[in-house]
Design a protein around this nucleic acid. Structure first.
Lengths: 221, 221
DNA sequence: TTATCATTCAACGCTTTTGTTGAATGTATG
DNA sequence: CATACATTCAACAAAAGCGTTGAATGATAA
């Protein structure tokens, strides 16, 4: 009375969910949604694809249960349906970096070049924050920072970095973070700061991972 | 000097790795490899697809770095390249069960029906093993059991269950496990045992997850 | 109501993926 | 050296997925 077909069916469904992650634009959308809820418009502005296409991807994501949405006036706001999505994508990226040759090469060529130092782990950052021996900057866009950030972090997006150099400490290490472990902005910020003679390092993960680990989060009123 | 293309490139590569998981046969192959190393022949016998097709899937898996292989005489033996593959697939399945409507329905219809009791967690099984209040059976095929199993577990595959009922305790709970959290065999075993009046439950995960958690493992010489 | 605007739908070519078939490779065995 | 056998390669048709285009929904605001 056992059903061998049930196994196939279940695996086909798992595969369907995996297929949702198998698209670069969808991964980008998920990363953006990990920062905060967004309307279709917002997402279009952020990733620069035609509206219909983004909408189509959002349908796919919703169909797999990775996102949820709610209507708010004219807008429909999308969000991650489950914080575990961040975990899943994290595992995927970690595995890709360690085992997929091309991914490893890309990361070595581009990222490691700009940031040869070991990144700071969450635990280490916590310790050093308590000791007061660190200056944390959040390089994401303002709207994402406003939705929540590491307590004590100063908002300083890439575009404004040069203008505020005088406000940064030269006797303390600066730690930069952004959307996730492979978000380009933090790498770029660290590279520019080092070029200017600052001591700067990157936080290993981004804000979503920090939040997921249930570490303290500051949300401005 | 920042490269916006690098982000796209990296995400495309992550997507490529995800695409590897986006196929039912490949997920099956990975589950089989999580139990032990296998030749192409072995895999063909286990999943019942044409040789060339299985080989093709294996090329794909290898290309993404999820598997590795070595030649041994006429055979080429494949294995998981990284234990983290088990973690990744686990996250995927968990997310699918919680959020993907069809997956949840399948699981409720088929699996929950056969096993309405809460499964036993790894931690709970460990505690109860120490207290001696549990009888553990491994319902996987012999070759997988031989490659490693939970210490003290008795090998009792589905096909031989009925023949050995007299050797099972009626005053102790029986815990069955197999390849993973959604492996059909453990569900089936528990259902049959309950029908016969035994107290039986399922271990929440399978052997690969047990091993990954660095819990004690028995490997016969 | 009508106009406006965010979002979705439907249909179309285009590319990629999938499984199949039959031949090729490469290693062991007689 | 020839045969047997495990595995891979190459080529093909069928199916699925992707991005584009233009029209349709559905809610707000005048």
């Amino acid at each position: 009375m056992s059903a061998p077909g049930i196994k196939r069916q279940l695996y086909a469904q798992f595969a369907k969910v995996a297929k949702t992650l198998a698209s670069a634009p969808r991964l980008e959308i998920l990363e953006l949604l990990a920062q905060r809820e967004r309307s279709v418009e917002d997402l279009v502005a952020a990733i620069g694809l035609p509206v219909a296409n983004v909408s189509q991807h959002l349908q796919h994501l919703r169909g797999s249960g990775l996102t949820a949405n709610r209507r708010e006036g004219k807008y429909i706001r999308y969000r991650l349906a489950d914080p575990a999505v961040v975990t899943l994508i994290g595992s995927l990226q970690e595995l890709a970096e360690r085992n997929h040759v091309e991914t490893a090469r890309t990361i070595n060529r581009y990222f490691k070049k700009r940031d040869s130092l070991e990144p700071v782990s969450r635990a280490e950052l916590l310790r050093r924050k308590k000791a007061g021996a660190v200056f944390v900057i959040d390089v994401r866009p303002l709207d994402e920072f406003s939705e929540g950030h590491i307590p004590g972090a100063v908002h300083l997006p890439l575009a404004e970095l040069e203008r505020h150099l005088s406000e940064l400490p030269r006797d303390q290490e600066i730690v930069a973070y952004c959307r996730g472990p492979y978000c380009v902005m933090a790498f770029e910020a660290v590279a520019r700061l080092r070029a200017r003679g600052f001591q700067a390092r990157r936080l290993q993960d981004g804000f979503p991972e920090w939040k997921l680990a249930r570490l303290p989060v500051a949300v401005p009123a």
